[in-house]
Computed example of a mutant assay.
Amino acid sequence: MKDDVTETLRATAQILDRFLAQYEPLRETPWTVPPGSPLAGDDAKTDPYQVSHSAQHAIQAAIVATRSRSSTSTSTCPAS
C-alpha cells in the first residue's frame, strides 16, 4: 500500500510540474492598468481592493480553461 501511495504522489507531482511549466508565462506577464481607463477608475474607487486584480484572474482562468480544453494530450492521472 505504501508503494501505491508513493507512486500516486510521484505521478501527481509530475502532472503538477508539467502544468506549472505550461502556465508559468501567464504568471510573469506584466499586468498594467492604463491610467485614465475605466478600470483604473474602478481601482481608485475600491482601494485597497483592486477590481483589476479580479479582472486579471478571470482572464487568466479563461485562458487556462481554453487551453486545457483544446489540449490534445491525454490524462495521465493514476486513478484513470
Rank of each mutant, 00 (worst) to 15 (best):
S54E: 14
Q14G: 07
P25G: 01
S80R: 14
R67A: 12
R18F: 07
Q22W: 06
T46A: 15
T66I: 08
G36W: 02
Y49I: 12
P78G: 03
A62K: 05
T74Y: 06
A62E: 02
F19T: 13
S71A: 06
S80D: 13
P48H: 02
Y49F: 11
F19N: 08
D42I: 06
P38G: 04
T46R: 15
S37W: 01
T12L: 11
L20V: 14
A58W: 03
T12W: 10
T72Y: 08
I15M: 09
Q50M: 13
S52I: 00
P25M: 02
R10F: 09
D17Q: 14
D17W: 08
R10H: 11
T76P: 04
R18E: 15
P34T: 01
E28F: 12
S37Y: 02
T8C: 14
D42Y: 07
T74F: 05
T32C: 04
D47A: 13
Q22D: 12
V33A: 00
P30H: 01
L26K: 00
V5K: 11
Q50H: 12
I63D: 02
S52H: 01
Y49T: 09
S75C: 11
T72K: 15
S73R: 08
G36E: 03
Q60T: 04
V51L: 08
I63K: 04
F19A: 10
R27Y: 12
Q56D: 05
Q14C: 11
R18P: 08
E7I: 10
T46I: 10
T74M: 06
R18I: 11
V33C: 01
Q14H: 10
A62S: 03
S68Y: 09
K45F: 10
I15P: 03
A21P: 07
S70F: 11
A61N: 03
R10M: 08
D47S: 13
S54V: 12
I63F: 09
Y23W: 12
E7S: 07
P48Y: 01
D4N: 14
L9H: 11
R18Q: 09
D43W: 00
S80V: 13
T32R: 07
Y49A: 07
V64L: 05
V64E: 01
V5A: 11
S52W: 00
Q22G: 06
A65Y: 03
A79D: 14
Y23M: 04
P30V: 00
V51Y: 05
M1Y: 08
S71H: 04
L39E: 01
Q60R: 05
A21I: 12
C77P: 06
Q14S: 09
A40L: 04
K2L: 14
P38D: 04
D17H: 08
T74Q: 09
A13Q: 14
A65D: 04
A58N: 02
